[in-house]
Amino acid sequence: MRVISTDEIYSKMKQVILDAGVNLPEDVEMALKKAYESEESDTGKEILGQLLENAKLARKERLPLCQDCGVGVFFVEIGDQVKIEGEHISDCLTKAMVDAYREGYFRKSLCDPFTRKNTGDNTPPMIHYDLVKGDVLKVYFMAKGGGSENMSRCTMLTPASGWEGIKDFVVRRVAESGPNPCPPIIVGVGIGGTFDYAPILAKKALFRPVFDKHPDPEIAKKEEELLTEINKLGIGPMGLGGKTTALAVKINVKPCHIASLPLAVNIQCHSARYKEVVF
């Protein structure tokens, strides 16, 4: 058994979360730069320029990239040969997030769904656990904004709908969202599983680096096809027109029931704050 202390997890994760709020991941910044160079619409280019300037300023001044510092989302993969010593790992991750949000002067954005009273410390984080084989602990963290989350949808298509049905739903979802989710967006698509599992697949897809290619060439092709269709919509940066509506489409697939074709579209704004940590 490999022993990992929650002290170590706490200090590493707090640093990562503090950094995530102010430091746009390199791949996302690179994608925005590429889009800036290739965007043909003047307004679109202007917006992309502002976003790059915003990223630079946020990093330099340690100011949050966006006032919506998001819900803390964790995906935790615990190897079966790992023993976590100290406190409960959920308490440890929650504490790391709470302390980071306080020390970083991040906005606390969670509230009771009925009274809408703010919980005051950005709790609770959304934590998903997977027990895997091996002696490694992986923690994926994302600060997920509400505006893009609001534009996300899940549906149960019929098997007859097939790829054409999937494509139609995803492209229409992006079209109907228009300027609302802060384009250019990254589109996470979960296909298969069950009603509950498809959105998890979609969210997990958003942890893939912007420029990585799906290992299955058939799915990689489908991602390209969707990206091309989406960028033909002409929504553009902040919905003011242009060819950069999405920076990437990431598909995550799992087999499903013979009667079903679950589909989830999780939209991520351009402020894609995510990080993978391996212990």
Binding site: Q50, N54, E61, L63, C66, P179, L240, C269
Partner: peptide, 13 residues
Amino acid sequence: LGATGGAGALLSQ
């Protein structure tokens, strides 16, 4: 009026 979403650091100036 529209302002640039996700440019919170920049707009705060």
